[in-house]
Structure formats: C-alpha cells, structure tokens
Amino acid sequence: MTDQLTKVFAALADPTRRDMVARLSVADATVNELADPYEVSLQAVSKHLKVLEDSGLVTRTREAQRRPVHLEDNVFDLMTKWIERYRQQAEERYQRLDAVLETMGTDEEPTDSPATSARDHTDTSRKGA
C-alpha cells in the first residue's frame, strides 16, 4: 500500500502530470489530445503518462485505432483513505488540546491569581509615584 502511495504522490509532484490528471478527470483523452496545450514533444508527454501509468493513476485502452488514456479512480480512494486516517488523528489531538485548554481556563480565578495581584500592586505603586 505505501509503495503505491509513494509512486502516486511522486507522480503528482509534477505540475504537468497534475494538470493531465485534472484534464482526465473530465474525460478520457489520447496522447495527442493530452499533448495539445503543452509546448513539449509527444515523447515527453508519453514519459509523463508512463509515470502516471506506473503509479496506477491512469490506464490506456484500445478502441480501434484510438488509444485513450483513462483515469483510475480507485487510486484516489487509496489516497483518500490514507489522508483521512491522518486527518482524523490530527482532529483527535486538537480535540484533546481544546479540552485541556478549556479545563485550564475554568481552573483559573482571574481576580485572586498571583499574577493579577502583583500587577495590581505594581500599577498602584506606579500611580502613587
């Protein structure tokens, strides 16, 4: 699982590949169609697609003479589960921190605290000076 995630995140680290994935999320496309907006060779686009294929993000199929590239949504499920696990852990830590901060806030008595008394005394002594 982690090995595939490593490949997926590495593949998505490149902005051109992220753009290709975004475009494939709308519709399948051929290599020529994917290459159209970029000022790179078809060979460069094919190399990007190879990285995306190796990560499992896309597959190529054959429809007569056409070879469309298809986005594989199951890889996004894998990424989402991985991200969600860590999001939940972070949320639980924040909730525990909120609870600790809340108890700290209710334990303090602002008028009788030593810091307030010392501050009041200092303020009073300054006023008299």
Rank of each mutant, 00 (worst) to 15 (best):
L5V: 13
V8R: 01
A10M: 14
T16Y: 13
R18A: 08
D19G: 12
V21F: 11
A22I: 05
D28T: 06
V31Y: 01
N32K: 11
N32M: 12
E33H: 06
A35Y: 02
A35W: 01
D36F: 09
P37W: 04
E39Y: 03
V40L: 03
V40C: 07
L42M: 14
V45C: 03
S46Y: 06
S46C: 02
S46G: 10
K47D: 11
V51G: 02
E53I: 03
E53H: 07
S55I: 01
V58Y: 00
R60T: 12
E63M: 13
P68N: 01
V69C: 00
H70T: 15
H70E: 09
E72L: 02
D73A: 10
N74L: 15
V75R: 01
F76P: 00
F76C: 09
D77I: 15
D77W: 10
L78T: 12
L78E: 14
T80G: 12
I83H: 07
R87A: 14
R87K: 14
Q88V: 14
Q88Y: 14
Q89M: 13
R96I: 13
A99L: 08
E102A: 12
T103A: 10
G105K: 03
E108M: 08
E108C: 07
T111I: 06
D112G: 05
D112V: 04
S113Q: 04
A115Q: 04
D120N: 08
D120Y: 10
T122S: 06
T124V: 09
S125A: 13
G128R: 03
